[in-house]
């Protein structure tokens, strides 16, 4: 028995929810677009748009901020973080999925903690220890710091993924005389391919945009793009705002391209949580 009276507040409510959503998304889009417009603008003292458009800010930003060098460093950091995290994380995830042992829950908790504590909280003691041991400010230090959230992320994504692979395949390989390593390489790795690809892409996107840990551990020569962007904004007034915007656009373009690639293999919620999607109906 649905009468019209019940429907009016429900409609108002739906309209309200939709309105808030549209307002939020619209403003975020416009915030992003204003970076885009300003990076191509000649002068923007007033009005809806700049007085003219130019590509000059990109060429000047490239030279001023040594973007070539920064992009090289960023690629090195991101690739190393992904590679080492997969190399360490997938074997660990295999044991977590297949074996039962004393202290397994405690270990799972240990892997969860770096993902729950915000980077700035543990980053300060971590960075100070790194500087005491003279690895602070080096490329290695930046890579190690970024692996702290990345490695548990790989383990937490890969563990349920490995759990769903039939254990009999491994047993069959062993029956035919394959050792642990051979079995791992010829049976598990091909089966795990899609999972490794998806989790690597997620780590890659998260590492490109990881500000805090790189900021705390990087020296002047090994800043990643997002940290370099922060410093150029921090020294506002030294460079033209449009130049900084051009750099921001390059950062945004790289991040969004990789995000788009990642979203081909994972769903958006996996970027914030490790929850698996449950098919509805």
């Amino acid at each position: 028995m649905i009468n019209v009276k019940d429907r009016v507040p429900a409609r108002l409510w739906n309209g309200f929810v939709r309105g808030i959503m549209v307002f939020f998304v619209l403003n975020v889009l416009l915030i992003i677009i204003s970076v885009l417009v300003n990076s191509f603008g000649k002068n923007w003292f007033s009005g809806l748009l700049p007085s003219g458009f130019t590509f000059d800010w990109y060429t000047s930003a490239w030279a001023e901020f040594q973007l070539g060098h920064i992009l090289f460093v960023t690629s090195k950091v991101v690739l190393a973080v992904v590679a080492f995290s997969v190399l360490l994380g997938v074997p660990a995830a295999y044991v977590m999925a297949r074996k039962n042992f004393k202290g397994k829950n405690a270990l799972m908790f240990l892997f969860l903690v770096p993902m729950l504590i915000p980077p700035f909280t543990y980053g300060i003691p971590m960075a100070t220890v790194m500087y005491t041991y003279n690895i602070g400010g080096t490329l290695g230090g930046v890579i190690l710091a970024n692996m702290v959230p990345a490695l548990p992320f790989i383990i937490l994504i890969m563990t349920p993924f490995i759990e769903q692979i039939d254990e009999n395949l491994e047993n069959a390989a062993k029956v035919f005389g394959a050792g642990t390593f051979k079995m791992f390489w010829h049976v598990l790795v091909p089966l795990l391919g899609p999972g490794i690809l998806a989790s690597s892409l997620l780590v890659l996107v998260r590492t490109i945009s990881m500000f805090e840990l790189t900021f705390l551990t990087a020296g002047p020569d090994n800043q990643t793009l997002v940290v370099a962007l922060y410093y150029s904004m921090f020294a506002a007034g030294v460079r033209a705002q449009q130049s900084v915007d051009a750099m921001a656009m390059i950062y945004m373009l790289i991040t969004l391209i990789w995000l788009l690639v990642a979203l081909q293999f994972v769903n958006p919620t996996q970027l914030v949580s490790r929850v698996k999607e449950v098919p509805q109906d």
Binding site: I31, I32, F211, V226, Y230, L259, P268, L271, V272
Partner: peptide, 18 residues
Amino acid sequence: VVPITLGAVLLAEGMLTY
């Protein structure tokens, strides 16, 4: 997921203009 991925630094740059 876009604003989360872009991060606080980029949003700050956009907000300073916007």
